[in-house]
Amino acid sequence: MKEQLEEIRRRALDELTDGASDQQIEAVRVRVLGRSGELTEVMRGMREVPQAERPAIGQLVNQIKRELEERIEALKLRLRQGALERSLAEARLDVTLPGARVPRGRIHPVTQILERMLDIFVSMGFEVAMTRDVEDDFHNFEALNFPPDHPAREMQDTFLVGGGLLLRSHTSNGQIRVMEERKPPLAVVCPGRCYRRDELSVRASPMFTQIEGFMVDRVGRITMGHLKGVLIEFLRAFYGPETGVRFRSSYFPFTEPSAEVDIHCLLCKGAGCRVCKHTGWTEILGCGMIHPNVLRAVKLDPEEFQGFAFGFGVERPALLKLGVDDMRLFFENDLRFLAQFPSLAGGAA
């Protein structure tokens, strides 16, 4: 009996070599340790064993059983390890292939630049107000002190939609709309769309974006010096702290004194080049002290209140800043153009 057991053990261990496969191991396990395996058979024959030897035989059976189980467990562990190692070696990816396409959009460059500009004004204490695109003559022209025969009021310059209404030709109507509603002190920027009868071309578009800004308070509290200070601050924040800024006398019906503001040409930094017609300057916005007649139009006494106003288009500075030279790019929506702009805030600006 003992020999028989030793024989079972030896054979099993012989078969459970280091190189045994999963199936071989399983076969040994079933044959030896299974429900009707060799060891079970041995245990069944136990009653033929003399009573005195039984404990020893039993012990031996358990010992062999434990030994084989341990061996099998060890072999199986080794097999799993081997499989893992093989799979680590084989299941390599070409990590340089592209990842799955997770969608992410882009923000239109004009929006990015407009938002950047508004952020600067908001950080300087301006609030943002949006007003109507379809306007009446009073808010677009008359209240802004445009004389009745001013060329901008002509059919060839301004879109008319009937009933005395027109598509605003500038966001300056925002000044009137806001001041009709609220009393100074006011510091407001009005972004929005404007319309002029220009064909869409490299230089112009029948629809474009402007920002109108104004600040009004009691006489003496908001001066032309402040107009200069605020605009220089804004222009340096937007174009860079080194930007040269120049104020030139000019004329607008709704400001007096009026000025045109130039910044150093972004291309030649003021040295003069073809783009700036060798002047070294680029015209960037118009501004001035709000004309007394404009204040009168919104029922403010010019002896009591004064303020400044400024206005500028967004597309042109956007072109300058992006270093491209075609207005149509903004309205064609060519993905090959739009996809170049990062979609994170402040990316383009």
Binding site: G125, E127, D217, G225, K228, G229, R246, S249
Partner: peptide, 21 residues
Amino acid sequence: LEEIPATLPARVFSYAPANRE
């Protein structure tokens, strides 16, 4: 115009409510 010194307004602005739109 370059003779006019560029200064910043002295008034302390009240909190400007953000534009909802």
